[in-house]
């Protein structure tokens, strides 16, 4: 464990808490992509199957459980409890366009052709693009509430901090995982446009509004 990884995990945790609190407090999931949330639930389910096979640490187990449970809780709130507020007219990104290529790529490029390893790889590939429906929703409506922007910033920062973690681990531990690194780069790059808008607008107290 190093500081970048810890900050990355905390940033991820913060994103999840911000999102759940936003939905719970406002009793609304307007502006949030249910497609992205379903994809995240798929991502963490397929990645953390090793919870039952491999013990790494109490921290590792605890965080994995939180991420899985929170992902399903979010999907539940969006599709069942606060279904009436879900913006399904704008949330039109097709999930299969992300799930199927990720699965094919995981079958082709992986560390080992075993069920757990392919599912882990699939989750890494899918995670890198899972935010696309959310970014698509923001671009369709042309704006995002501040709280949604904070959520996206925390979620985007998490993989960015993991990139620093991987640089650190390469030098300090001689450890690297190309699949995670390349997917993490893709994931972080997808947020760049958003990061720019967040820093230039939201942090200055303005609403995140896309140029018409």
């Amino acid at each position: 464990m190093n500081i970048f990884r810890l900050l990355g995990d905390l940033s991820h945790l913060l994103a999840i808490i911000v999102l759940l609190l936003k939905i719970w407090k406002t009793r609304s999931c307007a502006g949030i992509s249910g497609k992205s949330q379903i994809l995240f639930a798929i991502v963490y389910t397929s990645r953390y199957l090793d919870l039952v096979t491999t013990y790494i640490s109490a921290y590792n187990t605890f965080m994995k459980l939180i991420f899985v449970v929170a992902a399903y809780a979010t999907v539940y709130l969006m599709y069942i409890k606060f279904k009436a507020t879900y913006d399904h007219n704008h949330d039109t990104f097709r999930m299969e366009f992300l799930v199927i290529p990720s699965l094919i790529l995981a079958l082709l490029i992986n560390h080992e052709l075993t069920v757990l390893e392919v599912l882990w790889t699939f989750s890494i590939y899918l995670e890198s693009v899972a935010i696309l429906p959310q970014l698509f929703l923001v671009s369709k409506t042309g704006e995002a509430e501040s709280i949604t922007s904070h959520y996206l910033f925390a979620l985007g920062s998490y993989r960015g901090l993991y990139l620093l973690n991987w640089v650190y681990r390469y030098y300090a531990e001689d450890h690297y995982d190309l699949i995670a690194i390349v997917a993490g780069l893709v994931q972080t790059v997808l947020y760049c446009d958003f990061f720019y808008l967040y820093i230039t607008k939201v942090l200055k107290g303005k609403k995140l509004q896309l140029p018409a």
Binding site: D9, R47, D50, N60, W120, E173, H175, D177
Partner: peptide
């Protein structure tokens, strides 16, 4: 380290 490692990251 490398191929077949358990994945200790989240």
């Amino acid at each position: 380290d490398g191929i077949g490692d358990s994945h200790d990251e989240l």
